[in-house]
């Protein structure tokens, strides 16, 4: 069984369009096990109970930003080792710096394509 078939990913984005686009990319890559979540706080609760391998999260969300989600994941035992890829349209130096401090695994810039998503995931988990 290949990595592609086992990798479990959670997509966190408040916009259904973005979720759909990421999901579409994952479909094209051939990743089967992914869940989507529209609220970072709910996602955090679910991840605490059922961790995944990798979280792909948007930066700008109401209530909790992507980096806040990352910080929360890193601060709990069960979730601190989850891989985290942040998606943002404006990767400002601040975001990059804070991301690095929190152990962000990778960053995808908007707009993205299936190829860039694949490359970003591969650089975190290895060849798909």
């Amino acid at each position: 069984m290949s990595l592609k078939e086992n990798l479990r990913i959670m997509i966190v984005d408040d916009m259904s369009v973005s979720r759909a686009l990421i999901a579409q990319s994952l479909d094209e890559i051939g990743i089967k096990h992914y869940a989507t979540e529209n609220d970072a706080k709910v996602a955090l609760g679910k991840l605490a109970a059922n961790p995944v391998h990798l979280v792909i999260s948007d930066m700008n969300m109401p209530g909790m930003t992507g980096l806040q989600l990352l910080r929360a994941l890193r601060s709990a035992k069960t979730t601190q080792r989850i891989g985290f890829i942040l998606i943002t349209g404006t990767p400002s130096p601040d975001i990059v710096r804070e991301g690095q401090q929190l152990g962000l695994n990778n960053l995808i810039r908007k707009p993205f394509t299936s190829a860039t998503v694949k490359a970003a995931i591969e650089s975190v988990v290895g060849k798909l």
């Binding site: 080792r81 400002s92 990059v96 991301g99 695994n105 970003a120 290895g126």
Partner: peptide
């Protein structure tokens, strides 16, 4: 233009150590 601000951006991906997962 929207691109210019982020042109210079680069991010060194941090590869996951899956061994860590097993420990988990």
């Amino acid at each position: 233009a929207p691109a210019s601000a982020s042109e210079s951006f680069s991010f060194a991906a941090v590869t996951l150590d899956f061994g860590a997962f097993d420990q988990l």
